[in-house]
């Protein structure tokens, strides 16, 4: 749970809340961009960028090569799969009837 996973920011979903859709190994997940807010204040600057995503927050902008290497390392450790499963669990938890 302590390792982040690379994802690509695809679109801004809620500029007020600094939320964006990220593509994480083919899984779409809404994430917060608060930690990587550009100094210009213009969130659209990060569309298309890769970010290291940790528990739903983009913690750092990284380059595409770093993203690929990090993903390979996470796959080697089985952590990529674990994170994707956790994301699926999260989606399921939201769907469960209260």
């Amino acid at each position: 749970m302590c390792l982040g996973i690379p994802g690509q920011i695809v679109e801004i979903t809620d500029a007020n809340r600094m939320m964006a859709m990220a593509d994480v190994s083919g899984v779409r997940r809404e994430v917060s961009l608060a930690p990587v807010m550009p100094t210009s204040g213009d969130l659209t600057e990060v569309i298309g960028e890769w970010a290291l995503i940790h528990v739903g927050f983009a913690m750092a902008i990284i380059d595409a090569d770093e993203a690929a290497e990090t993903l390979a390392a996470l796959r080697g450790l089985g952590e990529a799969q674990e994170t994707l499963e956790a994301m699926a669990e999260g989606a399921k938890a939201l769907g469960e009837r209260a």
Binding site: M1, C2, R29, E30, V31, S32, V55, G56, F57, T83, A86, M87, E89, G90, A91, A93, L94, E96, A98
Partner: peptide
């Protein structure tokens, strides 16, 4: 509920105003 992010817990709180949502902050 197992969540991926504290934001999932926040969303559960928004969707269930009559329930108390507690997130276990660990790490």
């Amino acid at each position: 509920r197992m969540v991926y992010s504290p934001l999932d817990a926040l969303e559960l709180a928004r969707r269930n105003p009559n329930r108390e949502v507690i997130f276990f902050g660990l790490g």
